[in-house]
């Protein structure tokens, strides 16, 4: 077995693993991008010919354009709702030393693993298709479902940052200086959480844009998001399916880059030499 030397310089074996894993990730993405510009692609290793017609078809396809905008507004609404809920919730959980709030916090942490999206989707189907609660297919329900899926990830980011910054002691300091609760929250907690709220929100955006399992079960015909209609593209021309996938990929990559930039800014800001 090869070991990583103390200097941090990777050995030959670990470099090879790294390169193979990068190739494993990059090759399918590369093929999709290649396919989106290929004129035809059937029974060959690579597509034949070059064209931009798949992107033009996508641009003029009303179903895809509508789904694109639906995904965007669902994403923005999810980010806003998650941020509004997440910050006070994270604050409450981080300050709860024991008791029910602490338990709720742990359940929220575990919920993405304990309750997969498809399970939540069936729950929504049962709860919101009844005559009492006939909301299945409503846009706001999709947003609410995305918030449930994404909130734990935002909470994890925020709570970790609250603890990393020693916010409890900063608040005690502010309190000893004369700050009532609302001043401590607005003057100390909120400004101190700007970076983690931004990076957590971008994570929420990336998750919301790509969410399929739960949305597929609860979104009605009027509010189908981009990943839902993307599934239909796979039954048509390969080039069209590839182009449609590239658009989704582009959105996800932009979110990841923005998230990484904000995260790095936060880390650089905090770790500057004293």
């Amino acid at each position: 077995m090869s070991a990583m030397p103390l200097s941090g310089k990777p050995t030959g074996a670990s470099s090879a693993v790294l390169v193979l894993y990068a190739a494993y990730l990059a090759i399918p993405i590369g093929l999709i991008i290649l396919g989106s510009f290929g004129n035809s692609w059937s029974n060959t290793l690579l597509p034949v010919g070059v064209t931009d017609r798949w992107y033009l078809q996508l641009w003029t396809n009303g179903t895809f354009v509508k789904a694109f905008w639906t995904s965007l507004w669902v994403c923005v609404a999810t980010v806003v709702a998650a941020a509004l809920l997440g910050l006070p919730l994270a604050y409450a959980i981080a300050n709860a030393r024991s008791g029910p709030l602490s338990l709720i916090g742990r359940v929220l942490y575990l919920s993405p693993v304990a309750a997969p999206a498809v399970v939540l989707g069936f729950g929504y189907l049962l709860a919101f298709s009844s005559e009492t609660l006939p909301f299945l297919g409503a846009g706001w329900l999709t947003v609410a479902a995305h918030v449930v899926i994404c909130l734990p990830y935002l909470l994890q980011t925020l709570i970790a940052d609250l603890r990393l910054q020693g916010m409890a002691e900063l608040e005690q300091a502010a309190e000893s200086l004369g700050a009532p609760f609302h001043r401590r929250f607005l003057d100390i907690v909120v400004p101190g959480m700007t970076h983690s709220l931004a990076s957590g929100s971008i994570l929420v955006a990336a998750l919301s844009i790509g969410e399929f399992q739960l949305t597929n079960l609860i979104a009605g015909f009027l509010h189908r998001t981009y990943p839902i209609v993307l599934l239909q593209a796979f039954y048509g021309a390969t080039g069209f399916a590839c182009a449609a996938t590239v658009v989704l990929l582009l959105l996800a990559v932009l979110s990841a880059i923005a998230g990484a930039a904000v995260g790095r800014g936060a880390a650089t800001g905090r770790m500057a030499p004293a």
Binding site: E175, S176, L177, G178
Partner: peptide
């Protein structure tokens, strides 16, 4: 605490980083 009018210096200073 906010009305006790006490100046406190904490072990890790607790300066507001922003």
């Amino acid at each position: 605490p906010r009305l006790r009018d006490l100046g406190i210096v904490f072990q890790n200073y607790a300066l507001f980083p922003h």
